[in-house]
């Protein structure tokens, strides 16, 4: 392997740290949107859209929790999807002839655009790193661990006797019809 030493000696890479940063950011921003939506709608000239902003906040929080989980991949792609929705909403606000605060909307568009780029970079890097079962699927059909074919090894440890404390609690149901187990009888002395 020709990866550098420091790259191998930490299990967390830059992209993992970025994912965590985005996770906390997402939770913070989500809370802000949920608790104080007017502080966003007013400067953007989007009064009346508070319920939508609150819903976005809930989405941000869910994505944030996901981004902090053991596998942040899905949450990061959800963030990218959310970013696209935000961009669409802001673009609509920019096109709105009656919006008096288009300058602010422009600034917000640029900011969300930058975050989107960050989310995209992070999501695609994380996707690669966390790709389940990525790489070759080797053939392990020769790795039996036995000196002879497995069939010939069946019962080789026949010399082993199950210790008393590990015997099956019930007579094995396997021996169908099996040995008949007689019900315990009363001892002669009662």
């Amino acid at each position: 392997m020709n990866r550098s030493h420091s790259y191998m000696s930490h299990s967390l890479h830059g992209s993992d740290r970025l994912a965590r940063g985005l996770g906390w950011f997402s939770i913070g921003l989500g809370l802000y949107k949920m608790l104080a939506p007017r502080k966003l709608t007013e400067p953007l000239g989007m009064e009346g859209f508070e319920p939508m902003v609150r819903a976005c906040g809930a989405r941000e929080i869910a994505c944030g929790v996901g981004a902090l989980s053991t596998n942040p991949s899905l949450a990061l792609w959800s963030r990218v999807g959310g970013d696209a929705m935000d961009l669409a909403a802001l673009a609509a606000a920019l096109r709105d002839k009656h919006n008096p605060k288009k300058e602010n909307v422009g600034v917000a568009l640029a900011a969300v655009g930058a975050i989107t780029a960050l989310d995209l970079v992070c999501a695609s890097r994380i996707k690669k790193r966390y790709a389940y079962q990525a790489g070759p699927t080797p053939d392990y059909s020769d790795r039996s661990g036995f000196p002879r074919p497995a069939e010939a090894m069946r019962g080789t440890a026949g010399d082993f006797e199950t210790p008393r404390d590990m015997r099956a609690a019930l007579p094995s149901p396997a021996k169908s019809p099996g040995e008949r187990v007689t019900p315990t009888t009363r001892s002669p002395n009662g």
């Binding site: 079962q133 699927t137 080797p138 392990y140 059909s141 790795r143 039996s144 661990g145 069939e151 440890a157």
Partner: peptide, 24 residues
């Protein structure tokens, strides 16, 4: 080794399943 009539292994990782199959 302990002599089960039939051993079945459940997973969804192909190479792990093939390794288990190699073992019987």
């Amino acid at each position: 080794l302990l002599g089960a009539k039939q051993v079945i292994v459940i997973d969804n990782v192909p190479e792990r399943l093939s390794m288990a199959q190699a073992g019987g």
